[in-house]
Structures are given as structure tokens and as C-alpha cells.
Design a protein around this nucleic acid. Structure first.
Lengths: 158, 158
DNA sequence: AGTGATTAAGTCGTTCACGATTCAAATATA
DNA sequence: TATATTTGAATCGTGAACGACTTAATCACT
């Protein structure tokens, strides 16, 4: 990679296409989530709760790479929608346990049809399944590396 | 892909790792941009202006997949920092031309050192260059497909 | 037991994203 | 030429993200 002006252009960067792809994929989810009255980050929280039943705010954050300053207001909105329950732990009063309400559990059935719909809507595209699988694998590796990196940045600061 | 609960889990999805990777990479840019007093989206706008000198709000949006409701306030902030100029076109009073101030142009030199620093900070990682290049290629294809897709969703709505 | 550090959640302020809408200018069409 | 439609930018409201900070509870160590 040459250290000249070209390296500044969008096409040559990694961060921009990730940023664009993230926003664009979220937009594809949009109509389906709107039907359920959810935003994408709210859907992600439910996703981990459908998998783990009960988690602390901290544990949700570890899975989504988010912190309490983002999660607390979001969880309050999910609570207002009667989809989750928040309860302060009795063993450790610092932690708050988040779990699904009956409505929250019920929403899982509806949500299960989304991935298939998203995939179907891509039937006409030109990407090979093998390419996509490979891509996904690298993407997860990247997330892993980035998470460690950004953690070390944070610790370096402190 | 089976249409059961497993397909809901984060590990099996594409959108979540994109979302995570996007936020994590932005965080890596953080310290460098902070030195220049910029946010990542502001940096992106300067990036396209360093490449094209002058663009309308619309044209910037086409390159970054953003619309005026996001760009207008952002551009005003860049104007306040004296990095760009905004001038309503005389041929077509609807469009606003955005161009770089001298300070904005001067910032390019500083910005040029960032990509190398980011890359260097990844020296110790385990990803092969070839994998990364392949990944980047697929990522751009994906952005292209997603952009078309989300455009057709939008038009279908209208 | 006492105190100093750490930890989990929450608050606050700023900046994105984005849907819905408005407004004025330009274009198309009757 | 009138009028309808489209277009580019801007405004508004809501919900993320996130840095910096606060608060209260727990832990670690003497």
C-alpha cells in the first residue's frame, strides 16, 4: 500500500465499506422490524435474550459490544413496550438482570421468519453462497481482532 | 439454511457482524480523528472533498449513502470549524455547492498519515493480506448489491 | 474492621442516522 | 403559458452510539 493520496480514497479503505454495508443491511431489516415495532439494536437485544433467557446488562453488552450508556435507555424502551423485564439482582445489587416477558418470548416466532425473508430477497443477486460464507468467516475473524484491538486502546488510555 | 431458531443467533447472521465491525473500526480511527477535531462521518465528507474538490450535498450523499437530513447539520458543523464552504448554486438555486477552505485542504496532509498508522497497528494480527484483499473485494460487491436493494425498497414504497 | 480500588449501572451532552415533512426552485405536461 | 410534478436542501422528532462522569455496591488488602 503506497502512502500517498490514493490511500485516502473511499474505495481503498476498509472502514467506509463496513460502515456503508452496516447501514444498508440495517435498512433491509427495516420493514420487517417495523412490523414488530422494533429498531435494529432492540432486535439484537431480543436476539441474545431469545438465546440466553436471562442476562445482565453487562453480559448483553459483551455480546453486542455495547456499554451501559447505550443499553440502559434502550432497555428502558424495551421495558416500556412490555417485551422485557429488568430486575436488580439480590446477590449483587450492582447488576441488573434482564429477561423476557411473555410478549417478548412470543415475538420470537414472528422473528424467526425474518432471516428467511431476507435471504429470499437476495435470491436474484450475483453473490455465490460459497463467497458469502467465506466472507462471513473472515468478517467474524475481523470482529474478533477489532474487539481485542479496541479493548487494548481503551486499556491503554486508562 | 434451516428456518429454525438457530438461524436467529448472532453467529449465523451477516448484519450483526457488519454492525459490530463498523462500530469497532470507527473506534480505532477515534484517537487519530480526535487529534484533528473530527468525527468519523465528518472525516468521510472531507475524504470525498479531497478527492473531488467541489460537490453538491446530493453528490456527497450519493458517495456516502447519506441524505440531506443527515448531511446538512454535519456540513454546518464542518463549516463552523472553517473546514468547508457552502454556497448556493447560481444556475440552480436548489443545489448547494460544498468545497474545501484552505484549512480544509491543509488537513489532507495530516489525514494522509492515518491509513498507514491504522495498518501498522494491525501488524501483529493474524489475518493474511490476501484474505483481507479478498474480503474487501466481496465487501464492495455486497455494498453495491445492498445499495441497489435498498434503493428498490425505497422506490417500491413510493 | 477499615479504606482504597474496582465494578455495574446509570446520567448527561454531543453527534450521527433516518423517516416524515416542508419549501422553494426547476421541469414536464396539459 | 398555466399548472402539476419532481427535485435538492432543510427542518423536526426519535433513537441510537459514545466519551466523560456519577453513584452505589463489592472486593482486595492491610
Amino acid at each position: 500500500m503506497k502512502d500517498d493520496a490514493a490511500s485516502l480514497y473511499l474505495e481503498n479503505q476498509l472502514c467506509f465499506p463496513l460502515y456503508a454495508a452496516s447501514r444498508l443491511t440495517t435498512k433491509i431489516y427495516g420493514p420487517y422490524l417495523e412490523n414488530m415495532g422494533l429498531t435494529y439494536p432492540q432486535y439484537l437485544v431480543l436476539l441474545v435474550l431469545w438465546q440466553y433467557e436471562q442476562l445482565s446488562v453487562k453480559e448483553i453488552g459483551q455480546r453486542l459490544y455495547l456499554e451501559s450508556n447505550t443499553l440502559t435507555p434502550l432497555l428502558k424502551r424495551l421495558e416500556q413496550k412490555r417485551l422485557i423485564l429488568r430486575k436488580r439482582s439480590e446477590e449483587d445489587e450492582r447488576t441488573v438482570h434482564v429477561s423476557l416477558s411473555e410478549e417478548g418470548k412470543a415475538l420470537k416466532k414472528e422473528a424467526m421468519s425474518i432471516p428467511k425473508k431476507i435471504i429470499d430477497s437476495f435470491q436474484d443477486n450475483s453473490m455465490k453462497d460459497t463467497d458469502l460464507l467465506n466472507f462471513q468467516k473472515t468478517l467474524f475473524e475481523l470482529v474478533d481482532i477489532l474487539a481485542k484491538k479496541s479493548l487494548s486502546i481503551k486499556e491503554g488510555k486508562e
